[in-house]
Design a protein around this nucleic acid. Structure first.
Lengths: 201, 201
DNA sequence: TGTGTAACTTACCATATGGTAGGGTGTCAA
DNA sequence: TTGACACCCTACCATATGGTAAGTTACACA
């Protein structure tokens, strides 16, 4: 029961942090959404910063789980599945990528590494998987990461643009775009992998 | 002289909005950085929201200028130059992309379309340029936009990740990554364009 | 010389915020 | 029955914030 409240607070916090960002949400707003006062929240988490840390931790553990789930495949297919799972946000919840994006923007000034420690494992795993593709076997880590980052960007930037794109082009157009995006992402992954690492490296 | 102060306030606001986001910066902080009080800022801009709008407007006009500057080239080369210019942030200032990214995240709740109206022309121009590539001549607008967005994502997501990536992998590794990123981006653009639009569309 | 106006300033204010202090209630073990 | 503890509340506080009101200074112009 207590665990239940904690979990619900974390859910609410994750959703609101995603929507408004760390500075845009008050702890009172988070608690009030569940019919609680901010002191209930402070009782569970101690401070706003700590609550935010727990939200990041929870997201990170979901990424970990997704990572382990898809690692035993043929490398190219594995990468495609991996990135498609990210695009569909399988088991990540609908706000994970947004919160992470905001963290990328903010953690330059927040000196802590709360959001980065787990990204390391995540990225290294992807680098490894790219280098298992025959054509990429001799690529440098930097080249492999560059490719990974291009695809991650294609996924996440598209993700956060949904409201804006719908606003600009209308819901019908957006639906058409969204239906085909996964296929076009797969196509880009295949094309990029087939092109191989840059010759200079 | 008055114009000068206004411009300096806009510069400072753009930098701080990029670093901390709209809610993370106070107008007092912006003004104080120039040795002024927040009332000087309010005198020039009326309110914080209006100041923010002016910052977006200024960024948008720079995008417009860049767009006009590079439009008369052979389509593939034109696209490569275009995207490379975005990656290098030619004439955009170092904070434009970050501010825009934050705007994408925030304008879901801010109902206004301050940030979107100009993006339309920008994106439509890119769509047109993609469809001038022979292989893409019969592609739908949605397919062309999907491709454009993949590249924009590869550029902008990478851009905001610099501090995090440097923190994770160290400055040496990041430098290697950054040196090769433009070439790998060009390679991805070429590969993606050569693959053509998805067959289903 | 007077008048207006742009470009600021100091005072002030209502509101929101994160956080502390301390109290109340229920549950569970001794 | 009592004590401890988890859970949540009301009361309170110092600080920060966006914004208003009312000057002050300097300069342009008639």
């Amino acid at each position: 029961m207590a665990q239940d409240t904690r979990e619900r607070l974390l859910d609410q916090a994750e959703a609101l942090f995603a929507e408004r960002g760390f500075y845009g949400v008050s702890i009172a707003a988070i608690a009030s959404e569940l019919g609680l006062t901010k002191q209930a929240l402070l009782h569970h988490f101690g401070s706003k910063e700590k609550l935010y840390g727990e939200v990041l931790k929870r997201i990170s553990s979901r990424f970990m789980a997704l990572r382990e789930q898809l690692s035993d495949l043929e490398p190219v297919q594995g990468l495609k599945d991996y990135f498609l799972a990210l695009l569909r946000k399988d088991h990540l919840g609908s706000h994970a990528t947004t919160v992470l994006m905001r963290e990328l923007l903010d953690n330059k000034r927040r000196a802590d590494t709360a959001g980065t420690w787990y990204l390391r494992g995540f990225l290294e795993n992807l680098i490894g998987q790219v280098k298992e593709v025959p054509l990429w076997r001799d690529a440098g880590d930097a080249a492999a990461l560059a490719f990974v980052y291009q695809i991650l960007g294609a996924i996440n930037y598209y993700e956060i643009s949904q409201p804006t794109l719908t606003g600009i082009f209308g819901p019908d157009f957006y639906r058409r775009l969204d239906t085909n995006y996964p296929d076009q992402l797969v196509q880009l992954i295949e094309a990029g992998l087939a092109a191989g690492p840059p010759s200079g490296n």
